[in-house]
Amino acid sequence: MIEVRGLTKRYGSTVAVDRLSFDVPPGAVTGFLGLNGSGKSTTMRMILSLDSPDAGHARIGGQPYLRLRWPLREAGGLLEPRAFHPGRSARAHLAALAASNAIIQSRVDEVLELVGLQAVARKRAGKFSLGMAQRLGIAAALLGDPAVLLLDEPVNGLDPEGIRWIRGLLRSLAAEGRAVLVSSHLISEMALMADRLVVIGQGRLLADTTVAGLSGRAPSLEEAFLQLTGDSAQFRARNMS
């Protein structure tokens, strides 16, 4: 379970995240939807306490991230597509992270197999394609077998086969009772992957609903999304003029 309450982040005069509140319940995939620059990554980084909020807070399993005793065993995050040293092997990267949370080393091989990287596990990860890099990021997120997962645009740069693989993986992780938050700027992708939708624009909550709830608002899901985000763009234009 993730709770976000009044989360706010400013960069100079830009308000990247604006008093944002929502929940990510267990047992479901929650799609985090918004156009580029709407504040999805910043929100996720604040949930993992990589960036500190100017106001508000986020909790994981009722705790601030900083207080988690074994962070990787409680939450797994995929934030950047290549969050590993290019000179290090996938195996060493995962082994180092596992050591930090006292995760047994056999789990490294387990997650490597789960994401299909065991054949290249000892190669320098700098040579990985974007798809393989995303798989390594997902392996890292799954290392601690966490009850909460946060994935920032995990399908970016993946081929259709990879996208389908992620979709199936996230659905099965949610079916096991985990809370899964996955961001995207593509409504079509979210429609296939998510049960619930948290839609933001200019850092603000635009809708906290189900896929069915959103598509009921307009002839098509895409139109409903564009209406929502379009309103927020107009709102911004009004405020700036």
Partner: peptide, 26 residues
């Protein structure tokens, strides 16, 4: 349907875990 939280070892990550991580990285 909620996933465990049961197999969490006692305590929490400490300096020695992080030293091991850094040694593997190096």
């Amino acid at each position: 349907m909620t996933v465990r939280a049961s197999h969490q070892p006692p305590g929490g990550y400490r300096f020695r875990h992080l030293a091991r991580m850094e040694w593997i990285k190096l």
